[in-house]
Design a protein around this nucleic acid. Sequence first.
RNA 1: GCCCCCAUCGUCUAGCGGUCUAGGACAUUGGCCUUUCACGCCAAAGACACCAGUUCGAAUCUGGUUGGGGGCGCCA
Length: 468
Amino acid sequence: MVRVRFAPSPTGNLHVGGLRTALFNWYFAKKHDGKFIIRIEDTDLERSKREYENAILEELKWAGLDYDEGVDKNGEYGPYRQSERLDIYQKYIEQLLNDGKAYYCVYEGEEIVFEGNPLPNKYKLERNADSSIVIKFKVKKDEVISFNDLIRGLIEFNTNYIEDFVILRSNRIPVYNFCVVIDDYLMKISHVIRGEDHIPNTPKQVLLYNALSFNLPEFAHLPLIVGEDRTPLSKRHGEVSISYFRKEGYLPKALLNYLSLLGWNANEQIFDFKEKFKEFDIKNVSKNPTVFDYNKLLWTNEVHLRNNHIDEVYQNFVDWCNYCKIDINSDDVYIRKVIEISRPKVRTLKELYEFSLNFFKNDFEYEEEFVNKYMSKPWFEEVIKISINKLEKLDVFEIKNIEYVLKEIASLNITSKKNVFQSIRGAVLGKLVTPGLYESIEVLGKEETIKRLKRTLNFSNNITKLNK
RNA sequence: GCCCCCAUCGUCUAGCGGUCUAGGACAUUGGCCUUUCACGCCAAAGACACCAGUUCGAAUCUGGUUGGGGGCGCCA
């Protein structure tokens, strides 16, 4: 039974690196019909916050990475929060102590004043403010320890380069390297898939597995995601938090599509990750660090936005509006139509919103360029008047008929064809860049289109008077 | 400093000893299309880090050099 886990520490927001790790674990679980578990690694009491934990979980759900076990799921291997497993760890610490594989270490300031087991009574009872007691794991020298990495092959370390390390802090809370081993074993994790930055931790963990007579899981270390300068991706390179990409209007499926490509050659550029897991093979994951390319992500998003089913994009758009606390006061059918005609021209939900805003507002302002280049021209009013006249007579307000009428007006030789189209475009939407004119007018509907044309005429009259 | 990982177009990658005058995608440049802006279509430019070795033959195997990165916490 394949069991994998994503184990974030709730000390900050979820970022693209974390999501990518979660995604690859998810892929692996799905592919092998296994379980995907979320474990919260909150042994750093100072920095861990429940609000971060909630945010991470919420963002995983937004991304569509469903998990089988976790703090809010009731699996049989809980608790899934390390801070609630302290008594479990204690048992194994004692075992190590009893087996002579770990020992007490007493510090006074920086100085070690005692090493050994048992701990002499004098340290147990009275301690200066300055002294602290930790438990360290004893590392035997001159041993070669190795593990097989599913991506990199055999990796060997000599224990001579590993020092005895702390497993229990002076505040009685065990450290990361110890907790992961206990948890992964007890939670029956079969494959540990995590970032490459954990390779140096692995020998220490292997030592612990051996000392406790636990069977080793399989390991796979994913390549790091880096910035243009080849250092690990961080805020210095730009925004990296998932919440940022969400606010910017990236579709969850587009983000995960792009993230899939970071280290995995999926044979195609655009796909639905929820289907793609069938082809996932951890052996095909690349060893090289990969540069995060905001540009390609944007392109990926653009393609998803244009090609995904309209119902899904509509839902994404509504979700985005809610997330950004934007209230579009319109009915579903209308919003859907506006999305349909606008999406071929935008790349993100945010752009979609900005691009199509005037469909939802009838008191919009006119773009300056439109006013200067079209509205203030002598032929402008005539074009609009004729448009009102002809469109009013149109009984069946459909794209074909609208196109016919508009072309007719353009052929009247009042001004150039381009001027006619741009004038009408600006008159109904206030802008010179909009979705196709005919479909825009069709979506607006007869009543609204005429209302807008009249409003523009009014506005233009006022300008003319003012100039005189 | 020590240990470890990595090395194909600017970027993500295909390639697993001959099919490589190295393929695709993003970005870039030029053109076409066009009622705006895009999309789309066509085309161009662009890489095997270096040096040895193995072999009839190397991007592919081996060794070294160089370069980049990670780690060396009572952070995870």
